[in-house]
Design a protein around this nucleic acid. Structure first.
Lengths: 347, 347
DNA sequence: CTCGATAAATGGAACGTTCCAATAAATCAA
DNA sequence: TTGATTTATTGGAACGTTCCATTTATCGAG
């Protein structure tokens, strides 16, 4: 019951009456073996409960066939979507990606990366944890393993990135709010050490600037990137004497939190306050009221990232071009109709 | 830039002026090495960009330190929670689990399991895909790798299971509905090949039976286990001439779908129809109306499952006791107050 | 048939580690 | 100092695979 003697390629060779080399060749699907011999071997493999030892093979071969995928928060359906897209792309390439979660913890991330390197991954797709130190990927880089960042990037890094057009997304969202008549705007959520937030904030500011809205009418709040953070932002925003009338949220989770917060104050998104999210998770369209958001196609970006590493591995390079995915504004109910009275509140 | 010469234990030995055996000992944290020699070695490791080759080590060692985790749907936050719980338990044991998603596809599941075996996992936690064939785990079993099923089980299998008390959960939910005065009940969603559904359905029926509600007043609908499935169920339920007034849903996703469906018919959960979910995902409490559901603590079950494999690996056995986690009914708004008029509709 | 060419199959070394048995160095008791 | 003991270190075989260089079988042509 316990302690298998572990059958090897030699056992199969013996059973099939051929040499280990022949078995190896069959395993690799080489055409050099006569079909009937190959058949014999395959039968032997089936009879004995053989399992291929990829570790041993990698020792000899230059390259492994595992690809690692390190994601910062599996609990966020947005990243789960990303993972699913990657898996789809890898599946058709015949590789099985291994996913590991860092739970937004840089220490854990380090462990995970180390483990993946030790396992001999051929490539890596990483959505780095918040607070990742600049040199966190030095080891990976010196090991010469191809990496691509997905969704997030590090401040100064030569590692290629696959991400949505955060700047444009935020710009579109802000312009939408302004178009509805809002003149005092807020940006909700995210922490300042996220490059992504920087990009979104810039797009947001650009739209404001274009509309002639000054810094005095812009309020920016930091928070966790989840519902709780969104509620916190809303509370802060409503306590000032010049409260904003609309908010662009760092992501949908924050937006849901903000809407929850509004309800606690007896207000309703779309009627008393405009909210727009970012990411357009599945839930956004089902929410009450349905959330206006920026669609970024995470699964598509996942596929893109997967193809990028695949290509890097194949061409044995560690460099690749960034890919900035296009985004689109999904207008729903959370911003309500055009409301001229909002213009009147211009400071 | 490309094609590392790959530094090995021998390079370090040379750099530190010791033998490879010494380096190996240091790597394993053996106390047999004099502290200053160990220091020298560790420094050399740091200087050279060494990465440990776990594949080579596993070739010699009996046991690896990777544990695989195969989940049927990462997109469902419920399973993501499960994964997170497992990771937590493994982290404190110093192992890094590798997660793979099967997307509810038995063929994919087979590939994934094969890949994990080849990688030499020490143990496996699996939430099997829908439609898994009874012999899908034969290879894993003959390989002697410890496996535990999480959340789901296979019809006839000796593999230990960690799962919530589905029977009791459904029983509690149904009794709650009956207590609210409902007398024509429906069960929404899930496919008949899921053992889990069987268990829940039984609990549901038991509560009905106890309350003297006959088969004629019970309607059971199959569907996908997501929002879409829930909407479909609701539509079917409302078309009959003796529509139910309340439904227990296979899981929260189905319940959300059902509530969406109600709204399309101009009805509201909690006022015109009672809905209860299963799983109590985070979203349940934030929904409008907040969803009454059965809490199962997926993260806790994940931890439990992790400990189970860990123990199995340690005691080199492939058997373990099942663990049935306790559940509790979370009463919220989706079933409304007691409504005696519902009793009147008794057939 | 025999020879040369081609196709099919094989033995052995190598990959990077662990671990045992053995050696070398340090320590101690006499 | 010497041997006995303990403490540190080391060489070499082994793990299961791949791949190169060979050997052996098969086939066609003369």
């Amino acid at each position: 019951m316990a302690s298998r003697p572990k059958t090897t390629i030699l056992d199969i060779a013996r059973a099939a009456g051929v040499s280990k080399s022949t078995v190896s060749l069959v395993l690799q699907g080489s055409g050099l073996i006569r079909p009937d011999t190959a058949g014999k071997v395959r039968k032997a493999i089936e009879d004995v409960g053989y399992v291929y030892n990829r570790g041993a093979a990698n020792l000899r071969k230059a390259q492994s066939n595992v690809i690692g995928m390190v994601v910062n928060d599996l609990t966020n359906p947005f990243y789960a979507e990303l993972a699913v897209g990657m898996e789809r792309a890898f599946q058709s390439a015949g590789v099985v990606p291994f996913i590991a979660n860092t739970a937004e913890n840089p220490i854990r991330q380090e462990e995970v990366l180390k483990s993946m390197l030790e396992q001999g991954v051929a490539g890596l797709i990483v959505s780095p944890a918040r607070g990742t130190r600049p040199d966190a990927f030095r080891r990976v880089e010196t090991a010469g393993v191809p990496v691509v960042f997905a969704m997030r990037r590090l401040p100064e890094s030569r590692i290629p990135v696959v991400a949505p057009d955060n700047h444009r997304g935020a710009f579109l969202a802000a312009r939408h709010l302004i178009g509805k008549g809002h003149r005092r705007l807020a940006f909700f959520g995210g922490s300042a050490d996220l490059v992504v937030r920087h990009e979104r904030l810039e797009g947001f500011r650009e739209a404001c600037c274009e509309a002639g809205i000054g810094e005095a009418d812009i309020q920016v709040f930091e928070s966790e990137t989840n519902r709780k953070g969104g509620m916190a932002c809303l509370d802060m925003a409503l306590t000032g004497d010049m409260s904003p009338t609309a908010a662009l949220c760092f992501n949908d989770a924050v937006a849901f939190g903000a809407m929850l917060g509004l309800r606690r104050h007896g207000l309703e998104a779309g009627r008393d306050f405009a909210v727009v999210g970012f990411d357009d998770v599945d839930e956004a369209q089902h929410y009450m009221p349905a959330l206006t958001s920026i669609a970024v196609d995470p699964a598509g970006l996942g596929e893109r990232a997967a193809h990028a590493v695949l290509k890097m591995i194949q061409s044995r390079t560690t460099r690749a071009e960034d890919h900035i995915g296009s985004v689109s504004l999904m207008v729903r109910e959370s911003c309500g109709p055009y409301r001229p009275e909002m213009e009147g509140t211009f400071a």
